[in-house]
Design a protein around this nucleic acid. Structure first.
Lengths: 133, 133
DNA sequence: CTTAGTGCAAACTGTTTGCAGAGGG
DNA sequence: CCCTCTGCAAACAGTTTGCACTAAG
């Protein structure tokens, strides 16, 4: 199966990349609709699926009910704001999770891990301070 | 609001605990139905919600489309089998994730983290070997 | 031309909710 | 008795899919 670079696919990818955020399908849909009003949400879903399968973007397993997509497909971790549900990238030393000894005891073959930091983002912290929390 | 220990709630809790697994609402529903056939899935959801809010069990943010519930409410991490989608508990040194320096640079206040190891469980590994993979 | 991709609507999955009635304390 | 909890059905949110048509290469 070979890929075609359709107009839709191109704009979806561009919008995700230029957002610099970890958008959900419908957040991206809203953005893309501005330059392509007749695009359908299904197309956005299909393209996000395709683009993540080919490794151009990454599909995130992250907190919250909606799936999010990352313009950056390289390995890195995420931090999640419990207040505004925003997600940011975090660069951590991935070697630190070299627990193989502990883990192999349980008989698992470790292939990777997902680390999600949880906290409150700068914007929310500032807002909280204003309200004296 | 005070809690009542209804028959349903008791059986739901017992079944989750005696399973020793990280069940989804409908897996638990199937088990509970055996001793209480007229129970409804909504009741299972409502009780899992209540029990996790009161800290008796834990609601997991984990890979996969379905939410899972943990009979063990204490802080610990999980390991996820990519083949059979089973989840197990893992005890790791939680202090290792003391990255505050790196992270606070981004202005986040870290309140916790979720670490999910990903791999292949003993059972699946054995099955793979049989098939010569 | 060929066949991957699209828009639309309808289906599907997991979860939540309104309501009238049941039962725990 | 009160009020939390239940069963049921219907609603909901997010995602996927079947189909006939469009357009990329």
């Amino acid at each position: 199966m070979q890929l075609r670079m359709t107009n839709q696919r191109e704009i979806i990818l561009q919008e995700l990349q230029k957002s610099g955020k970890h958008l959900t399908a419908d957040e991206l849909y809203d953005r893309v609709k501005k330059s392509m009003p007749r695009i359908s949400l299904a197309t956005v879903y299909r393209n996000l699926e395709t683009l993540s399968k080919t490794g151009v973007i990454a599909k995130l397993e992250i907190s919250g009910r909606q799936r999010r997509f990352d313009y950056d497909a390289s390995e890195h971790d995420h931090i999640y704001c419990v207040q505004c549900h925003k997600v940011d990238n975090v660069e951590l030393d991935r070697e630190v999770i070299g627990y193989s000894s502990t883990i192999s005891a349980q008989g698992y073959k470790i292939t990777g891990y997902r680390l999600e930091l949880v906290g409150i983002c700068p914007v929310c912290r500032k807002n909280n301070q204003k309200r004296g929390e």
